[in-house]
Design a protein around this nucleic acid. Structure first.
Lengths: 228, 228
DNA sequence: ACTTTTATGATAGCATTACTATTATTAAAG
DNA sequence: CTTTAATAATAGTAATGCTATCATAAAAGT
């Protein structure tokens, strides 16, 4: 298996025209990641994006209906990429505890860039996901967006890791709740460490993802191994 | 102690003029809760609020610099109120496990209305907090807002519950990380149960807060009791 | 080669949002 | 009974979130 041949496929169309297929599309993705990382999603606009890529608002609107759909696309891409990475790193590992441990390492690790998708800066995308990912579903349109399949990549990753939990303890009653909780915590704790340090023991350093992984493994294995 | 004499005091000024002191101020709070619950924070505007309370945008701007600060105010008020409620329900309980268990019940419980603060619809506010609370800190201005004390109520509640964890197990290394994780999960799981049910075993019914409390107690006591 | 389609760019415009400023009116305080 | 303070009424402005039109260039089909 050659990692340079990876193509991330999404299970929905948050876009109107597939941005992976054109030069302009790839520039939209590439530069929007840069700009959202820079300005935050609230301050990010298609007008500003058009300016930095030397194109026009109207052209960007031909790819994405609005900036929310663009965020959905970016976040979904990240989840699909992480799901792939979890699979890759747990492949051929027999011990279910080791598999789960590695999965937690992957979901907390800061972005690992993929040489096959040069137009995606996965490190910057990971920073975006930490701050903005929950905004894709915390809206009034969540049920419509869910019907359109916008959260399938997130759910699939959650389900894959929940299956590892069940492989360790088939009687654990909350595998999905546990994993969705720690998937969210994986971001929150890193954010808290940097910005609201009194909410966590994790230190706001370069190593906060690893420290967060240690905390989450404590938590998950305690829950899964619990005598009832 | 008479519960009808409670006055929630915030440790910061997200407002320009204290809305508790005037009739218009109380109407702003009261109706903004209704309207945000109804429209979601993104669609909520001061213009729409001014229309429903029969006042003007300019008048509302004399109380709150912008809608983000109003949300900060509402969410802080909720945390201060919950902190008070946790104190109330754990007061005079000697057993630290029982104290922690009751604290978890309080943070997951849907809003309990306070007869002393009739202008606050705590049930609607609780629904707002579930969906919108994380948006108060997931911004580029988080560090400035933190300096202004906007998250003190949240941090204090987290710290109070973390102390209960330490009372049970003084060696547990992540009390604040654990509690901030479950405070966030208390909202997420209820939201997932209703809108993204494949992410959790909690069922999207009226009883989802109680079910979430059961899950969180499992998790917290497993972590705290863990043999290391 | 030559039409037809498709993608982008250039330009304009428009309703809504997020404010700020000005002045008038009314009610409370001194 | 007059000064102050709070609200209302009105207007205006820059930015946002779009949509529409038309020209042009490049790619695809015949």
């Amino acid at each position: 298996m050659n990692t340079t041949s990876i193509k991330i496929n999404l299970n929905h169309k948050a876009y109107m025209r597939d941005p992976e297929n054109t030069e302009l599309g790839r520039r939209i993705i590439n530069e929007s990641i840069r700009l959202i990382d820079d300005l935050g999603f609230e301050q990010f606009t298609f007008r500003k994006l058009a300016n930095v890529i030397g194109s026009t608002e109207a052209s960007i609107y031909r790819y994405f209906e609005n900036k929310h759909k663009l965020l959905v696309y970016l976040v979904s891409w990240h989840w699909a990429w992480l799901d792939h990475f979890v699979l890759f790193h747990t492949n051929n590992i027999a011990d279910p505890r080791e598999r789960l441990s590695r999965a937690i390492d992957v979901i907390t690790s800061s972005g690992i860039d993929n040489p096959a998708t040069l137009h995606i800066n996965e490190s910057a995308l990971h920073r975006i996901v930490i701050v903005e990912a929950s905004k894709v579903y915390l809206t009034k349109e969540v049920d419509d967006d869910n019907k359109d399949g916008y959260f399938l990549e997130y759910k699939r990753l959650c389900h894959h890791i929940a299956e590892m939990v069940l492989a360790i303890n088939p009687d654990y009653p909350y595998p999905h709740a546990l994993i969705s909780t720690i998937m969210e915590a994986a971001h929150q704790q890193v954010f808290f460490a940097e910005h609201l340090p009194s909410l966590t023991e994790i230190k706001g350093t370069k190593r906060s993802p690893e420290e967060t992984a240690t905390f989450l493994k404590h938590l998950v294995f305690a829950a899964v191994d619990q005598k009832r």
